[in-house]
């Protein structure tokens, strides 16, 4: 992870973090997507662990999660996806994002060991605020996994040090007060927020929620260390499904083409 941000700094550009849900819309298509993201221009991959009740997510990622569960995805199949991915890609940082209950059910200590062994670099667990995350963070640190915390517009200066104290890898700034894939933040607000975060931490700052177009990605890339694209990408998957909800022909190409476009947006962000 550190090497990745080091390389991005060397290239004087921000990175693109691309999100897909493990197993969406089916195991094989999801694997093809996962293995194509880096070549299409993703610098970091965020792989969603599907959950039945994704309460911080908007309609796009909710639907994506349900598609994955319907196709038989579990936390175990997501880890298997990572193992298969690591057979050919040893470098692209990969973080898992999701909710705590499947991890808790798996067994927190077993999970962090299995995730590290599979080749996961970090974890983002949406419903574990700093007040509750010790039971995951401590074993994760032992296993060598970063626990990436979320900072939001409601995280004020008094609280920010609490959030940043044990975060690792990068800080994920949620640019709006809302759920994923809904509204977009004004670029001036994002710039201000990123500089506020930089006053408190030397860690790279990735900005997400509401980035839908290459232009928006470019604006974020102009001020942050990385731009996260999730819902908009998942919407391209949804658009590529046939009447039965199965992956239609050309879905993978469509999605990877979209990622390339976003990557160009990000790369143009500081020019």
């Amino acid at each position: 992870m550190a090497a990745c941000f080091e390389r991005l700094r060397g290239e004087s550009r921000a990175g693109l973090v691309a999100f897909i849900t493990g197993g969406d819309p089916d195991a094989a298509t999801s694997q093809a997507l996962l293995e194509g993201l880096a070549e299409a221009g993703a610098d970091i991959i965020e792989l969603g662990m599907p959950f039945s009740d994704p309460m911080a997510d908007g309609p796009s990622i909710q639907a994506s999660s349900l598609r994955a569960l319907k196709s038989g995805a579990t936390l175990r199949t997501v880890l298997q996806q990572v193992r298969d991915f690591r057979k050919s890609d040893h470098h692209t940082p990969l973080v898992l994002m999701g909710y705590y209950n499947p991890i808790y059910t798996y067994g927190t200590e077993d999970f962090v060991c299995d995730a590290a062994e599979a080749g996961v670099d970090g974890l983002i667990v949406v419903d574990l605020p700093p007040e509750e995350d010790a039971e995951l963070r401590e074993p994760a640190a032992k296993a060598g996994l970063h626990c990436i915390r979320l900072a939001t517009p409601t995280t004020d200066d008094a609280r920010l040090p609490v959030v940043l104290a044990n975060t690792g890898g990068f800080v994920y700034y949620v640019s709006i007060t809302g759920i994923t894939g809904t509204t977009s933040a004004a670029s001036t607000d994002v710039a201000e927020a990123v500089s506020r975060l930089r006053r408190h931490t030397g860690l790279p700052v990735a900005v997400g929620f509401g980035i839908k177009t290459p232009q928006q990605a470019g604006e974020v890339a102009g001020v942050a260390d990385a731009a996260v694209v999730g819902s908009a990408l998942v919407d391209v998957i949804a658009a590529g499904l046939d009447g039965q909800g199965k992956a239609g022909p050309g879905l993978v190409e469509e999605v990877l083409g979209f990622v390339s476009g976003m990557s160009k947006g990000v790369r143009g962000g500081r020019s």
Partner: peptide, 20 residues
Amino acid sequence: EDGHFGIFGGRYVAETLMPL
């Protein structure tokens, strides 16, 4: 004081809601 009844309870919410 952190809202736990033994191991139960707590505050498992997204960061946006924590300050609230």
